[in-house]
Design a protein around this nucleic acid. Sequence first.
DNA 1: GGGAAAATGTTGCCACAGGCAACAATGTAT
DNA 2: ATACATTGTTGCCTGTGGCAACATTTTCCC
Lengths: 194, 194
Amino acid sequence: MPAYHHGNLRATLLAVAERSLRRQGADQLSLRELAREAGVSHAAPRRHFADRQALLDALAEAGFARLDQELRAALAAAGEEFGPRLHAIAAAYLRFATEDAALLELMFTGKHREGGDRLVAAAAAPFGLMDDLIAQGQAEGVLEPGDTQRVGVVLFATLQGIATLINGGLVAPELLDGLVETAVDQFMRGSRRR
Amino acid sequence: MPAYHHGNLRATLLAVAERSLRRQGADQLSLRELAREAGVSHAAPRRHFADRQALLDALAEAGFARLDQELRAALAAAGEEFGPRLHAIAAAYLRFATEDAALLELMFTGKHREGGDRLVAAAAAPFGLMDDLIAQGQAEGVLEPGDTQRVGVVLFATLQGIATLINGGLVAPELLDGLVETAVDQFMRGSRRR
DNA sequence: GGGAAAATGTTGCCACAGGCAACAATGTAT
DNA sequence: ATACATTGTTGCCTGTGGCAACATTTTCCC
């Protein structure tokens, strides 16, 4: 336990920040408070994050990585069939998205400056998952052939939108499962091979 | 031009705030700066907005009112037929949503505290529009009968999600029109009377 | 009309945050 | 061992939000 050098302040700060984010939202997150909780002086975080926004960006990036993991896990658990996989990824996305509203906001809210590139890259992973899934559906002949991106983005957007409405308190959380059902169902009917 | 009493500081502050919001985002919005721009002392805004969040809430509420207006206008211009009306409301929503990303964030982001009720009420107007439209589609026999809310929320969510993806820089703005097309098309096919 | 009371603005203060610079301690490499 | 890079620390500055005390209008009621 080093006295002067913390050892892995960066990781500690991110962990503490994640907790703060979940509990109080990004607005209330204070670098100085994180430093206090990490038992370190108020200027120490600056060695690891150029400014407040840099830390928030790092949180968002980590969020995308975790989202990717969770979606992959859900897909893996859903087997090989397209239908169940689609349902699983949708449910997993919304679980993630509604479980930590502040993080989701951070991930999708347009507060990325130059660091936006990193975030866009991090977001590509989950996007790709959705894309691959659509491709599978097309290959199996369940979905009509076409641009996977186009339809994949719309599906992703639907899930994201549902999360926004629920997190914003505009739709009661109890309706979540039903909405996912409806969304997936509508998507299937709307893209089914004719 | 009263020297001491401004006359309608509240309205002025909201106007200045709207400009600031659009230009710098909600994070950078400072009550004191608004006061300066309004030519008033730093504590004056407090007489009209209990705190910073109250002003932001007021901005969001006004945003919903304006959104409602614009959607109504679009519907009115689209005639009586269901198809064109659906397309028009979708396009109008996304125009509004992508034209002022920071405002949209404020409107849907879950930063509403107790004042959330007011916002939810304000949001009900545009929601109702969507709902009525769905009902029309069902009445005309274009859409399959069913719970208008359920399908309306999903449609709303899709549009909102597309806006989020574009505003967040995760999808190129050039794709907007195509996505709206795809979304509306998918919705029609997914909800068409079978 | 006139005077109390409410509304609206002002000045001054405080605590706290972010950011910067100068300095200190610790690790690392030659 | 000694120079150099890393990582923390202390101290300072500016700006913000929020509060309280005071000043000026406006309104309302007799």
